[in-house]
Design a protein around this nucleic acid. Structure first.
Length: 512
DNA sequence: TTCCGACAGTGGGGTCGCAAT
DNA sequence: ATTGCGACCCCACTATCGGAA
């Protein structure tokens, strides 16, 4: 298949807002593709590179290259060039990659160049990611969409399913079963604002401690253990403690779901930053493990001794989990049966926070394991803090926010009356808010460099956040975690904003 | 007809590893 | 040694489509 065809369809998909039309366009494209094209076509359409990291960003994509007059690039040829490009390493590699990019761009027509640029910079934005591709694939092959979706979750890969489907048709879906050693997309949680709300929505449920670490899926088949992240990357080699822990368990073949965290000598969880830094360390794992040892804490089991447990109710999966994993390696939990247990659940949440954890997850006892879904049967409850801060500047938005001031720079008051930047946020804004603040902030503008508009510090915003974390970037040495706008406080003046001092006092222990 | 679940989009901060300076 | 960049962890929230109620 020619790249120009793909670029053309991508543009058409982006031009329509109707999902049914997007699906139809993709289905038509898939019907014309070879099975071997599809593992490339699908990630390209989602704005993803099958190679993963390539080491090319804005800096390497520098100057424009004259386009080719006629389309000659094929999808597979382009992929081969990018694969070769990704394998360049060592001294001078950046220059060599830049040369290869220029060569590729020179072979592309103007339309193909636009598409490739979007692909390489992650700006494809056509409103069709994997979910729409699944629908299109179902339409193209006559397979039921629900079965395609399930196969994708179990395969952990849309590309693999697409190739099999286009080569062999709907019967190929049979081959995608839960398999030890092949990661599946993990089940995710939605948020609830309180324990009472969560319990009310779920009825019979369990309340589990929410640990602030790295989600892991652990597969063991005899002596072989593999550890995968939420995005299904294999991190086995970085976590020898997890492999050792999995080998201690009584079962020979299983898949467990849990969180990796680090506890200090006193048994309190280390901060997310410390745990994540440890898990990210690849070069000298023994040294990193010595400084910050981690422990797996499991909360679900997907498979044991060849039995697929995904469709069992959570209560039954937990029974299997308790049989396989000793209590000290399982997450703390409270069994609840309904609204009468809310006071117990609230005490459990308070206790979890006192122990240094993030909050709780309330889980319906009847629910199956919905791989890859942000299902309504797992509800996380975390405390939310709020502050009144001052808008110091705003950044021009991208994509659908082009032409709108979007990302706010947030400042707290200092003792001398100046303002200290604590971080940024673009979350929590409706289109009306965006329109209003674009107008209002431009009235207050003192400088616009085309990216950041600095303003007189006059507008007060109420900001919600999940906690304070250390920062080397911001002057106070701290920044807000997951800051989002609640509302503009037009009733407040900058002198009424919160101070750095009160913020630090509210979160003791964040700074040494 | 209205409601609501699922999806896509818009980016945030931190840390690590690699190459360039 | 330090700096810049990209990848990959954690994540909240809104708008929209289209099927369910």
């Amino acid at each position: 298949m020619l790249l120009s065809r793909l670029a053309q369809v991508s543009q058409e998909v982006a031009a329509t807002s109707a999902r049914s039309r997007k699906t139809a366009l993709l289905a038509e494209l898939f019907r014309d593709a070879d099975a071997d094209d599809v593992p490339i076509v699908i990630p390209y359409l989602a704005g993803r590179l099958p190679q993963g990291r390539l080491g090319i960003g804005w800096k390497v994509l520098g100057r424009p290259v004259p386009p080719a007059p006629e389309p000659t690039l094929t999808v597979r040829g382009t992929d081969a060039r990018l694969t070769a490009l990704g394998q360049v390493s060592g001294a001078g590699s950046q220059a060599e990659r830049a040369r290869l990019v220029e060569e590729l761009m020179g072979a592309a027509t103007a339309g193909e160049q636009r598409f490739l640029l979007g692909l390489l910079t992650g700006e494809v934005r056509q409103g069709a990611l994997d979910a729409v591709a699944v629908e299109g694939l179902a339409q193209a092959t006559g397979a039921p969409a629900a079965e395609v979706r399930r196969a994708v979750m179990l395969a952990g890969s849309l590309q693999a399913v697409a190739r099999a489907l286009l080569a062999d048709g709907p019967p190929a879906l049979e081959r995608f079963r839960l398999t030890v050693g092949r990661p599946v997309q993990p089940m995710l949680a939605q948020s609830a604002s309180s324990v009472a709300e969560a319990v009310g929505r779920l009825g019979g449920c369990a309340v589990e401690e929410k640990l602030d670490g790295i989600r892991v899926q652990v597969h063991r088949d005899g002596d072989t253990v593999r550890v995968y992240t939420r995005t299904l990357d294999d991190i086995t080699d970085r976590l020898p403690e997890v492999t050792a822990a999995a080998r201690e368990l009584a079962g020979e073949r299983f898949i467990l779901d849990g969180e990796v965290v680090s506890f200090d000598a006193a048994g309190r969880p280390r901060s997310f930053q410390e745990t994540a830094g440890r898990v990210g360390s690849r070069v000298d794992v023994p040294a990193a493990a010595g400084a910050v040892p981690v422990s797996p804490v499991f909360f679900d089991v997907l498979s044991v001794d060849g039995r697929d447990l995904l469709d069992l109710p959570f209560a039954e999966r937990h029974t299997e989990l308790a049989r396989l994993v000793p209590g000290e390696m399982r997450v703390r939990r409270l069994a609840a049966t309904g609204p009468q247990d809310v006071p117990d659940a609230e005490r459990f949440l308070a206790d979890s926070l006192a122990r240094g954890h993030e909050g709780v997850v309330v889980k319906g006892l009847d629910a199956p394991y919905s791989a890859g879904r942000r299902g309504a049967s797992w509800l996380k409850v975390k405390p939310v803090h709020t502050l009144d801060l001052v808008v110091l500047a705003a950044e021009w938005g991208h994509g659908r926010r082009t032409g709108r001031l979007s990302n706010l720079h947030l400042g707290a008051r200092a003792d001398d009356g100046s303002f200290v930047m604590l971080g940024k946020t673009f979350k929590g804004m409706t289109d009306a808010t965006l329109a209003w603040q674009t107008e209002r902030l431009q009235e207050l503008a003192v400088r616009d460099d085309g990216h950041v508009v600095r303003v007189r510090p006059e507008l007060v915003v109420e900001i919600a956040y999940d906690g304070l974390q250390r920062s080397t970037r911001y002057p106070a040495g701290v920044t807000l975690r997951f800051a989002r706008l609640v509302r503009y406080r037009e009733d407040k003046r900058p002198e009424d904003a919160d101070t750095v001092g009160t913020l630090l006092a509210a979160h003791p222990g964040v700074l040494p």
